[in-house]
Amino acid sequence: MPAALPRRLLGELLGTMLLVTAVVGSGIMATRLSPDDVGLQLLENSTATVFALAVLILILGPVSGAHFNPVVTVAAWWSDRHDPAGLPARDIAPYLAAQTLGAIAGSVLANAMFGVAQGLSATVRDKPQLWLGEVVATAGLVLLVFALVRTGRAALAAPAVGAYIGAAYWFTSSTSFANPAVTVGRAFTDTFAGITPTSVPGYIGAQVLGALIGVGLVAALFPAVRATRDDIDVRAGRPIEELTVGERR
């Protein structure tokens, strides 16, 4: 049997919280260590995020699937809506709530650790080129995750997703938020990683569009869902050995 819903929600809340703590905390540390070099600040911030994300996926994948991202959760449900082992539709709203609350808590925790005053961000990110960056970043993330699942390589999710997000920090204009919950959470810190609340809707809209493009690319490139023999089913956090023979087909 899959993990009970409360345990999966705790996994999503904890994972998203620690992810945002890593993003925000490393951003604060970067500005303190390298106050006059924005490029070095971004390198420090992205490196910490890559490692933290990979580790969190490894730790919490067996519990909740390690989505930490509303667009991944919704895409997982859509991709596996006919699969008995997939994420049930009734779990979507609780997952999204846990991820969003976790993201906010992550910013609050990072602020507290570094002695930063709690409050909303004043960093405006509302240019069209930034929205385009979010479309590209989110489409690529969704394509990556579900390409791995549909080709039986879900065990590579931790290093692959970490590597993609790390690269997207640098090749997208927006530095790759690619996550509506994380975007909301980052509005609660007036630091290097922050985003003003008025900029959040534009980013989330771009992320939703990117997710739709990503799902379309997955359907076009990998139309057949193949059962995986990986230890962890990243779609629903269900150990493959617990699936029945019929469910594995």
Rank of each mutant, 00 (worst) to 15 (best):
G216E: 08
S34I: 12
F146P: 03
T16S: 09
T175I: 10
A93V: 15
L156I: 00
L217F: 12
T244G: 15
L143M: 14
T189I: 12
A105H: 05
D91L: 02
T228S: 15
Q41V: 07
T191D: 03
V20M: 07
P62M: 03
G119M: 13
G202Y: 05
V234W: 11
L43I: 08
A139C: 11
A224L: 05
M29Q: 13
A117G: 12
A66I: 09
W77P: 01
L18I: 06
A66Q: 12
D80Q: 08
A66M: 12
V124M: 03
L217Q: 06
G185W: 02
A3Y: 12
L87G: 01
Y95L: 02
P239M: 14
D37T: 13
A187L: 14
T21E: 00
A220Q: 04
D83E: 12
Y95Q: 00
V184T: 09
W131E: 05
L120P: 10
G61H: 02
G61P: 04
T100L: 04
L40Y: 00
L9N: 01
A168M: 12
D231V: 15
L156R: 02
G237L: 13
G140L: 14
F177K: 00
L56I: 07
S174N: 01
V63Y: 00
V50A: 07
R186H: 01
A48C: 04
T172K: 15
V208D: 05
A206W: 09
S34N: 15
V200N: 02
A193C: 12
A75M: 13
W78K: 05
Q129Y: 13
Q99A: 08
A52R: 03
L18V: 15
T100F: 08
R229Y: 00
L58A: 05
G119R: 10
Q207H: 00
G27S: 09
H67G: 10
D36T: 13
G210P: 03
G102Y: 04
S199I: 10
D190F: 06
L96P: 00
A154I: 04
G210M: 04
M113Y: 06
W170Q: 15
L101K: 00
S46W: 08
V116E: 13
P223R: 07
L96F: 05
V55I: 09
L53H: 11
R81H: 14
T228Q: 05
S174G: 13
G202T: 06
L58C: 14
D126F: 03
A206G: 06
S34R: 13
W170R: 10
